[in-house]
Simulated scan of single mutants.
Amino acid sequence: MQVQELLQKKSIANKFIAQLRDVNIQTDRMRFRKNIERLGEVLAYELSKELNYDNNEVKTPLGPCKVAVSNDELVICSILRAGLPLHQGILNYFDDAENSFISAYRHHPNNDEKFEVLVEYLASASLEGKTLILADPMLATGKSFANVLKALKPMGMPKKIHLVSVIGSKQGIEYLKSEFPEDSKLWIATIDEELNDRGYIVPGLGDAGDLCFGTKLQH
């Protein structure tokens, strides 16, 4: 799996990441969601450079003009619930893509720090021969992405897989390299050094789902 880290070069994305991490700004849920959406747009733009293109002819008021337009059939699959604003950002740029949604959450069977990632809901288009974009803002252990890939197998074999994330850990990325095809590519805004004992990214930003939509009840 190839990795493309956005913040290796300075850009406006630095501002969005800084605001996502800032505890004094995180209380504004609308801004938090919007910054994830904006990063989805930036990452979608970078990803678009590796799609396949045909030269199409369009008619302007003054004559014909040839324009390169992507011919890839895209399916955007976001992991609920934190993936929704990231999904919207990607969809803003790939507005004719098909869409899939899947749940993946941490289940603590013994009410301690140990957890397993469960997938319980899936609504997906066919993936056969298409380009799959998997979206989840936080790439911590990598188990959510890996379990989602397994759950999507009955939907068909995509010709290419792109993963899109905002913040990831080095440990999670290394895990995904053994779970995804070699020609898969991860598009990520920034990578942090470690995970804590609870499997959260450090320094990270906290629980993206809670910061987007409010604290959830545990069951």
Score class of each variant (00 low, 15 high):
His107Phe: 10
Val119His: 14
Ser126Gly: 07
Tyr105Pro: 11
Asn110Thr: 11
Glu128Ser: 06
Asn111Tyr: 02
Gly63Asn: 10
Thr131Leu: 09
Tyr105Thr: 06
Gly129Thr: 14
Glu73Asn: 15
Leu80Ile: 12
Ser78Val: 01
Asp72Ala: 10
Gly129Phe: 01
Asn71Met: 08
Arg81Leu: 13
Leu86Tyr: 06
Ile102Arg: 05
Pro64His: 09
Gly129Glu: 01
Asp112Lys: 04
Asp112Ser: 06
Arg81Ala: 09
Ile79Glu: 03
Leu132Thr: 04
Ile90Val: 15
Ile90Asp: 01
Asn110Met: 06
Asp72Lys: 11
Gly83Asp: 07
Gly89Cys: 01
Leu132Cys: 04
Glu120Tyr: 13
Leu74Gln: 02
Val67Glu: 05
Ser78Leu: 04
Val75Leu: 11
Ser100Cys: 14
Ser70Asn: 13
Ile102His: 06
Asn71Tyr: 07
Asp96Tyr: 09
Leu127Ala: 08
Ile102Asp: 02
Cys65Met: 15
Tyr105Ser: 12
Val69Arg: 06
Thr131Asn: 04
Phe94Ser: 09
Ser78Asn: 12
Val119Trp: 09
Glu113His: 11
Asp112Gly: 09
Asn111Ser: 13
Ala97Tyr: 00
Asp72Tyr: 06
Tyr105Cys: 02
Val119Tyr: 11
Ser124Leu: 07
Gly129Lys: 04
Ile79Ala: 01
Ser103Arg: 07
Ala68Leu: 12
Cys65His: 10
Ala68Lys: 15
Ser103Pro: 09
Glu128Gly: 00
Val67Gln: 14
Glu116Leu: 13
Ala104Thr: 02
Val75Ala: 14
Glu128Cys: 01
Asn110Lys: 11
Pro64Met: 08
Lys114Trp: 00
His107Val: 10
Ala68Tyr: 09
Cys77Ser: 10
Leu74Arg: 05
Leu91Pro: 00
Ile76Trp: 05
Asn110Leu: 06
Leu74Tyr: 01
Lys114His: 11
Lys66Cys: 06
Arg106Asp: 06
Ser100Asp: 04
Pro109Gln: 14
Ala104His: 07
Ile90Asn: 05
Val69Trp: 00
Leu122Gly: 08
Glu113Tyr: 03
Ser103Met: 10
Asn110Glu: 13
Gly129Met: 03
Gly89Pro: 09
Lys66Tyr: 00
Ala104Asn: 07
Lys114Arg: 14
Val75Gln: 03
Ala97Asn: 00
Ala125Met: 11
Tyr121Asn: 09
Val75Ser: 03
Arg106Met: 04
Cys77His: 07
Ala125Asn: 11
Asp112His: 07
Phe115Ala: 14
Lys114Val: 02
Cys77Asp: 00
Asn92Lys: 14
Asn71Glu: 03
Val75Tyr: 10
Glu73His: 13
Lys130Gln: 03
Ile79Met: 01
Cys77Thr: 15
Ile79Gln: 10
Ala104Met: 13
Ser126Ile: 03
Val75His: 08
Tyr93Val: 11
Glu73Tyr: 06
Cys77Gln: 00
Glu120Ile: 06
Leu74Gly: 01
Leu132His: 02
Leu86Lys: 08
Lys130Ser: 06
Ser78Phe: 13
Asn99Trp: 05
Cys65Arg: 06
Pro85Tyr: 03
His107Ser: 09
Leu122Thr: 12
Glu128Ala: 07
Asn111Ala: 11
Ser103Ile: 10
